[in-house]
Design a protein around this nucleic acid. Structure first.
Lengths: 189, 189
DNA sequence: GTATTTGCTTAATGCTATTAGGAAGACTAG
DNA sequence: CTAGTCTTCCTAATAGCATTAAGCAAATAC
């Protein structure tokens, strides 16, 4: 019997690819083992349990997404940065629906803090540097932007916008215009 | 052996309550059967399969939410309506996390069209009547609002805002101010 | 009060997750 | 290059969930 050469990293990568193909929810220990041509029990030398696999995929996706966003943000400011960041986010979700779904699982606080999740909020703050928002206003805007991007993309991927004829891309573009407008003219408390 | 008096309606109701208690993901046919003191097989006279239960809970939650929102919207317009609708949405998610999670499953197009899902978009349009938005702009704004509410609430419930000291309620309030502002002053294409 | 329908049970199959213990490939030392 | 050890993978076993088929018993119909 030749060995399959399993490692936690290769398993995570394969699980992420599998998630994009068959859906994050369908990434089971068994399915993952099948994709390597080994028995399910073989995985337990490398991963703790099924939840461990899910968390690893989530962290992988968060890191990938943060990397892409960082690249997209380089050398941009203001609305340019806003649009670049938002499109990176949306395009990643479309290219990698399984990975994107993985980012939505709940991470325990320590894991979340250590992970790339923090980089996202940090980058959102970086975008806001191009607008004149500080202090609590900035926190509020970070939360609003995070919610907006996540919510729009989630609903779009869930098919919530499919029943209205207008192009989803156009609505997205106008939504970004609106966000830019409100950030430039943030209402006073 | 006394009978448990199962019906599709009672099962759906119980499944919804169970979802709020133990999480939507943990609502299994077995767990639901246990909550009635019957064997899992007994449920199959009333429901088609596990997915059927999930869909029924989703439709129940969507209908409940639409009812609440309709009540909240009655007699309100403009920002009042916007805030009332948004708070209804957010409070429902907090009170009924399991039901709320259920609303996020993908419904096949026919089911979605027949269900209360359509009422939500309709009500969002009603809110926008208090603002001067028409045609494609209105569709864009409906999508933006839907994404915003869903995304903010999702992230909040997932704990994404827990690592920043500022009150989440305050950010929510300011986000609604911002949405009101941008709707009143929708940027031209 | 008997007949029929309906609701729930038991029984069985197949899937998944997980643990324990064994066998065999792959390093390591002499 | 052989012997020992470590690691990787396998087999075997347990347990839970989903689902179907077949049977018994309770409620209903006449």
């Amino acid at each position: 019997m030749a060995r399959a050469g399993l490692t936690a990293e290769r398993l995570t990568q394969a699980a992420a690819d599998l998630a994009d193909e068959i859906g994050f929810q369908n990434v089971t220990v068994s399915a993952l083992a099948r994709s390597f041509g080994v028995k399910p029990a073989a995985l337990y030398s490398h991963i703790k349990d099924a939840q461990d696999v899910r968390v690893r995929v989530a962290l992988l996706a968060l890191a990938e997404l943060a990397d892409r966003a960082a690249t997209a943000l380089a050398g941009r400011a203001g609305k340019d940065a806003l649009v670049a960041f938002a499109n990176t986010y949306r395009n990643y979700a479309k290219e990698h629906p399984g990975r994107y779904a993985a980012t939505q699982i709940e991470l325990d606080p320590e894991t979340a803090a250590t992970s790339a999740a923090g980089r996202h909020a940090e980058m959102t703050r970086a975008i806001l540097r191009g607008y004149e928002l500080a202090g609590p206003d900035q926190t509020d805007a970070v939360r609003m932007l995070g919610g907006m991007f996540h919510g729009y993309v989630s609903l779009e991927m869930a098919g919530a916008f499919r029943h209205t004829p207008r192009e989803v891309d156009a609505s997205w573009s106008r939504t970004l215009d609106a966000l830019d407008a409100v950030l430039r003219n943030w209402p006073p408390a």
